[in-house]
Amino acid sequence: MPKKINPALRSQAVRLVTQHRSAYSTERAVHVQVADSLGVSRESVRRWVAQHEVDTGVAAGVTSNEREELKRLRAEVRRLREVNEVLKVGDDFFRGVIVRVSDGGSLLMGLNPGFWTPERLGS
């Protein structure tokens, strides 16, 4: 799992790159200089700047907010699928149980012998 970087350090790196971009001949050169001055990797600075450009609309891509929402929605879908599986198992179980109302109005529960076949029992 990637280590957490202080958001202030990240924003400082992005600010430095955007401020000093014109003083360097290449984008890579400014990334190297900022990375060295802050003690982080050049690749980290490059990714932070790229994500900042997406978040501000300068470049196309998935914004940080959209990425967080996708993460949340995927977790919710995973949880709902698990719940659905539990409900399916319960439904299969209770299909094998029939409920009858006797003449006196009381509920009687009994197994539906046609439901519990060897295939359903896994034998």
Rank of each mutant, 00 (worst) to 15 (best):
A8W: 05
G114H: 11
V58H: 13
V14Q: 00
W116I: 02
A23K: 14
A75T: 07
L16R: 01
E69T: 14
V89I: 08
S37C: 00
K71W: 10
T18K: 12
G110R: 14
A23P: 14
P2A: 15
L16N: 06
W116T: 02
G110F: 06
L9V: 07
V86F: 12
V89L: 10
V99G: 11
R15K: 02
V45A: 01
P7F: 08
L87G: 07
R95H: 02
V30D: 00
Q19L: 12
A75Y: 12
L87E: 12
L38K: 01
V86T: 09
F115A: 04
E43V: 05
E66W: 03
N6K: 03
N65F: 09
R72K: 12
R95S: 05
T117M: 00
P7M: 05
E27R: 14
W116H: 04
A23H: 13
F115H: 13
A59H: 13
D55M: 07
V40F: 00
K3C: 08
R95I: 06
E43D: 08
A23V: 07
L73G: 12
T117P: 01
V17L: 05
S44K: 03
S106Q: 00
G57N: 02
Q33S: 11
A29V: 04
T117L: 04
Q19E: 08
V32P: 01
R67F: 11
R81G: 08
E76D: 14
V83G: 13
E82Q: 09
R46F: 07
R28Q: 10
N84K: 13
V40I: 05
K3Q: 10
N84I: 10
R21I: 03
P2H: 14
N84C: 13
R47D: 11
I98V: 06
P2G: 15
E27W: 13
V30L: 04
R78N: 09
S37Y: 01
Q12W: 04
V49A: 04
K71R: 14
P2Q: 15
R74T: 13
